[in-house]
Nucleic acid binder design. Structure first.
Length: 510
RNA sequence: GGCCCGUUCGUCUAAGGGCUAGGACACCACCCUUUCACGGUGGUGAUACGGGUUCGAAUCCCGUACGGGCUACCA
């Protein structure tokens, strides 16, 4: 029996959670649930200079909205805590020192200024960004170039220092990526990454390996941007815990914007959301739009993300979360980056709105109306309205344009579209229509249609020419579902009231 | 610059040696509907290029080009 599957999503709480992040969560979640495993969220907050208040809370709110609840996390508890790296700080040093003892790492005392100086000094056209690597480490101030006494006295006097990994020269490290197959690197070309910072906090490189080990992570999934630092992690695993303990890796393709890696900048520029939910930067006060507020359904959001880089091999595109869990397969995740297409994203949402029953949509739509300062008291009517307009709503906010006239009389009547073809015949027709509608019984779509069409016949008028004015009188403009459906839902009193008022308005204009 | 990853319609993708290169979004046309949608039918549109391997290549190999990522005491 193999080990229980344990995967983790490890965000740093520095701002909004974007598409790529959510998709990483999703693939982790799907993989875990598919294999009966656990999904862990670990907060990687080792860089206190980038701390953003509220970001951590926000991330969990996003996951909750998406329906991707962790099994273990800061908020959910678990046996492998703490789940915030800043709270695990005392854990890391011993591993770094263990590496030094084994000759795989060393102390470095170079100041920021000295590092900058080095980069300036060795910068050239052929090498625009010099690395702290085996070529240069012997020219720097570290425990490799200093005598043991010098090193010890520097340490004893609390001279600021970091611990760097000593990358071996001329070795090839490789691993099997679940998506890409074998990937290999020449260790000579990788720099001596900092493992433990001067403030005693680990960098990502050390922390990810130590915590994945301590938290018994079996599969480590992350974005492709991490691939270049994989050799560091591989070596760390080998030195600290052994290859056998190492999780299986998969690096997801990037989600691209029109130019490169999708950024919130792209969203602002091209008018589509990039974050899961609205995010307001506490420092600048700037708000970045989220899918939730744009009117996306969580089910649609997850669905469209899942299909951005994965498919089940069939032509099926609409998947519920349960279906995704059942059919997800890491090996079928694409290796190439995917450009985000907002039009297709909207299509997914439209499909999900059509698929979701009116009753299930009531709370969401009701809340949307509330947000727009159009509170709804008649939920029975709301459900009926949703039922007849949802096919023409792409995002939830569309319900406002498509449905608000049921609850509030239109303030504007597009008489301009009626007047050019208005005449006395039509005028008397509508007078009589109002009269017959007064006596209509039952007040049903079918009955209303029959009355109208019969009357048109006796007046020798074409129904087509009457339906548009009728619609405009009821809704204010040229939109909405079937006119008789509208009249039916509006009810007799309201319908007659609108007709009478609109009629008066038309006569004034005529 | 170096390293790594990638490359099928505009976009997301299917086809893991045999083909009329399939589907979806978007777009266009028609039908339905005498609002707009929904729905239906059809259409435009792709294997980056050059070499191999093979009876046969989108599929395997090499090179080139292009795209992307990384190159911090950030993740």
């Amino acid at each position: 029996m193999s080990k229980k599957v344990r995967v983790r999503f490890a965000p740093s709480p520095t701002g909004g959670l974007h598409l790529g992040g959510v998709r990483t969560v999703l693939y982790n979640y799907l993989f875990a649930k598919k294999h009966g495993g656990d999904f862990i969220v670990r907060i990687e907050d080792t860089d206190q200079s980038r701390y953003v208040s509220g970001a951590e809370e926000y991330i969990f709110d996003c996951l909750r909205w998406c329906g991707l609840e962790p099994d273990e996390s800061v908020q959910h508890g678990g046996a492998f805590g703490p789940y915030r790296q800043s709270e695990r700080k005392p854990l890391y040093r011993k591993y770094a020192e263990q590496l030094i003892a084994a000759g795989h790492a060393y102390y470095a005392f170079d100041t920021t200024a000295e590092l900058e100086e080095m980069r300036e000094k060795f910068k050239s056209t052929e090498n625009p960004s010099p690395q702290y690597d085996h070529h240069l480490r012997m020219k720097m101030r570290n425990s490799l170039t200093l005598s043991a006494d010098e090193t010890n006295s520097l340490l004893a006097s609390n001279t600021p220092n970091v611990i760097r990994i000593k990358m071996p020269v001329g070795k090839t490290v490789s691993f099997q990526d679940m998506i890409r197959g074998e990937v290999s690197f020449d260790t000579s070309l990788v720099d001596d990454k900092v493992l433990l910072k001067a403030d005693g906090m680990p960098t990502y490189h050390l922390a990810v390996v130590v915590d994945d080990y301590l938290m018994k992570i079996t599969h480590a999934f992350r974005g492709e941007e991490w691939l270049p630092s994989a050799p560091v992690h591989l070596l760390l695993w080998q030195y600290l815990f052994g290859w056998e303990e190492m999780p299986q890796w998969a690096h997801f393709p990037l989600i691209l914007g029109p130019h490169g890696k999708l950024s919130k900048r792209d969203g602002a520029k091209y008018g589509f959301p990039v974050f899961a939910m609205n995010w307001q930067d506490p420092k600048t006060g700037e708000t970045t739009a989220g899918f939730r507020e744009k009117g996306f359904l969580p089910a649609a959001f997850i669905n469209l993300l899942a299909l951005l880089g994965w498919n089940d091999g069939s032509e099926k595109e609409i998947f519920s979360k349960e279906e995704l869990i059942a059919s997800f397969d890491m090996a079928r995740v694409h290796s190439g980056g995917a450009k985000f297409d907002y039009e297709k994203a909207k299509w997914f949402n439209h499909e999900w709105i059509k698929l979701t029953s009116a009753s299930k949509l009531v709370p969401l739509v009701s809340h949307t109306f509330e947000m727009a300062n159009l509170p709804i008291t008649n939920v029975v009517l709301l459900e009926q309205v949703i039922a007849i307009v949802k096919d023409r709503c792409t995002v939830v906010t569309d319900f406002i344009e498509q449905g608000s006239f049921f609850f509030n009389r239109p303030t504007q009547i597009d008489t301009a579209s009626i007047l050019p073809k208005w005449n006395t015949e039509k005028s008397t027709f509508f007078d009589q229509l109002i009269h017959y509608y007064q006596q209509a019984n039952p007040w049903t779509t079918g009955e209303l249609e029959k009355i109208c069409k019969d009357l048109a016949l006796t007046h020798q008028l074409k129904t087509g020419e009457l339906l548009l004015p009728l619609r405009i009188m009821l809704v204010g403009g040229k939109f909405g579902p079937g006119v008789f459906d509208i009249a039916c839902l509006l009810g007799k009193e309201e319908t007659l009231e609108r007709l009478t008022q609109a009629k008066r308005l038309i006569l004034q204009g005529a």
